[in-house]
């Protein structure tokens, strides 16, 4: 819709000065729910396939023609236009239905497979499980905070070693500047190196955690609620 809106703004002066649109971009909406990764296509065809498990027919002869301003609109164009917007509605509604299960909270059961993002809505930095032990603090980092916004995650796969573990701030004796992250925090690689086991614990803000939809079987093992979510997602 962002592209459509840009076109409309150029077409109508009233919209050019319109600063606050009550518009949700469908791709952003799907991304925020962890159903789609940033590197994946956000085209309507791709979203229909990803979210609904269906195929959206896109006849190039209809899409790329000069008849969209011929009145009355030809029946096949009318159908094409209707199907496009109907697809958007279905995707939004389906994503909304699974959204309540898609937000990791401090109540999310231990063992649940999660992905740790580099930033909210951003790329995945690591995969792991919510730790069975949620102490008051870990390695000097407070876990239990009044906002109930942190969880310990047992990371078993690092995707971006240089990503900052933003709550694990560097100690007073600083590392060489070349090893510092911009956030002044340890990187995931540094925490991993300091661990004597295959997995290592990270305190993460829940806003940077999403359910790991790539591992539905693990979701099944985690909890019935997440199982429902993943089945819904994978069957679509």
């Amino acid at each position: 819709m962002k592209g459509d809106l840009t076109r409309l703004k150029k077409q109508f002066n009233q919209l050019a000065g319109q600063s606050s649109f009550n518009i949700i971009d469908l791709k952003d909406y799907i991304l925020r729910r962890g159903i789609l990764q940033r590197k994946e296509s956000g085209s309507l065809v791709a979203l229909v396939e990803k979210v609904l498990g269906l195929y959206l027919p896109k006849d190039d002869a209809i899409r790329k023609n000069e008849q969209w301003e011929v009145i009355p609109l030809a029946p096949e164009l009318l159908h094409y236009a209707a199907l496009d917007v109907y697809a958007s509605r279905l995707i939004f509604e389906r994503a909304t239905n699974i959204a309540p299960f898609d937000q990791v909270t401090v109540q999310t059961p231990p063992g649940t497979m999660v992905a740790l993002l580099i930033q909210s809505g951003g790329n995945v930095a690591a995969y792991g499980r919510i730790s069975k032990t949620q102490p008051a603090s870990l390695g000097g980092v407070r876990v239990r905070v009044p906002t109930k916004s942190r969880l310990v995650v047992d990371v078993d796969k690092v995707v971006i070693p240089s990503a900052a573990a933003i709550l694990h701030l560097l100690p007073q004796s600083p590392l060489p500047s070349s090893q510092k992250t911009k956030a002044g925090a340890f990187t995931l690689a540094q925490l991993q190196a300091a661990s004597s086991t295959d997995t290592f614990a990270v305190v993460a803000p829940v806003k940077l955690l999403t359910f790991d939809h790539q591992n539905p079987v693990c979701c099944f093992l985690s909890s019935a609620i997440i199982f429902s979510n993943c089945i819904l997602f994978s069957e679509l």
Binding site: M1, D4, R7, L8, K10, Q11, I23, L26, R63, K64, N65, E66, Q67, W68, E69, L73, L77, Y80, A81, A82, D84, V85, Y86, S88, R89, F92, E93
Partner: peptide, 25 residues
């Protein structure tokens, strides 16, 4: 009230759209 919206346009159009679709939920 939620509504899905979309737009289509002639292939030769460099700006603006031709039709605007609204699907109230």
């Amino acid at each position: 009230l939620a509504a899905s919206v979309d737009a289509e346009w002639n292939i030769s159009r460099l700006s603006g759209v031709s039709v605007f679709q609204v699907a109230p939920h």
